[in-house]
């Protein structure tokens, strides 16, 4: 029904929401090792403040599933005595949690000023071309996801590409990124070099 005489009831037209309903995913239980790790993390906070461990728990879900599933978030809610809504509320706020299925390697190019001044736009474009996907997409093989990221705090090594939330590739150029993709395809995880240290005095 419509509340306006001249307007038809059309929820598709009037109720735009960019919010995606979390993917159910597979039934979820932490592996014993991850559960033990979470229990260890919980000891760092006062017993009645289990909620503080919610980010750590969500990282563990992501590690196990690749992204945050509704089942995973419900499992976390059960352990931390929260409602599923409270967990989802937190999970959807932080950018390092993937809310939908992503590739095995998530390439995140820093796009904020210092990186952009050193050519991050070209890096993003070359990666996009090389992988044949746009920013925000996963390639058909499910291997790579390309994303842009806000300032990583490594502006002296700009531009920076972060792989899987932990490995940094600094001083990125279209050529070095092309090589990185080839290396990952050939060697897998071994191609990720982590963070190189370079400190100027």
């Amino acid at each position: 029904m419509s509340f306006h005489p001249l307007m038809e009831y059309d929820p598709g037209r009037f109720h735009h929401s960019e919010r995606k309903i979390a993917d159910e995913g597979a039934p979820f239980v932490f592996t014993p090792e991850r559960r033990a790790k979470l229990d260890e993390i919980l000891t760092e906070y006062p017993p009645e403040r289990k909620r503080s461990a919610v980010l750590a728990a969500l990282y563990l879900v992501q590690e196990q599933e690749g992204y945050l599933t509704a089942n995973g978030m419900r499992h976390v809610a059960g352990i931390l005595d929260l409602t599923p809504a409270e967990v989802e509320d937190v999970a959807t706020y932080y950018v390092m949690f993937f809310k939908e299925k992503v590739g095995k390697y998530v390439l995140q190019v820093c796009r904020t000023l210092s990186c952009a001044l050193n050519g991050a736009e070209r890096v993003t474009e070359s990666l996009s071309e090389k992988l044949g996907i746009k920013v925000g997409e996963t390639d058909p093989s499910g291997m790579f996801t390309l994303l842009e990221f806000e300032c990583l705090g490594a502006c002296d090594r700009a531009p920076v590409v972060m792989v899987n939330n932990e490995h940094w590739h600094e001083h990125a150029t279209p050529e070095s990124c092309s090589k990185l993709i080839d290396d990952i395809k050939a060697k897998g995880e071994a191609a990720l070099s982590g963070c190189h240290l370079k400190v100027e005095k």
Partner: peptide, 11 residues
Amino acid sequence: WRGWRVAAGAH
């Protein structure tokens, strides 16, 4: 150093 087209922010 700019990109050929403006990299689209699609988060």
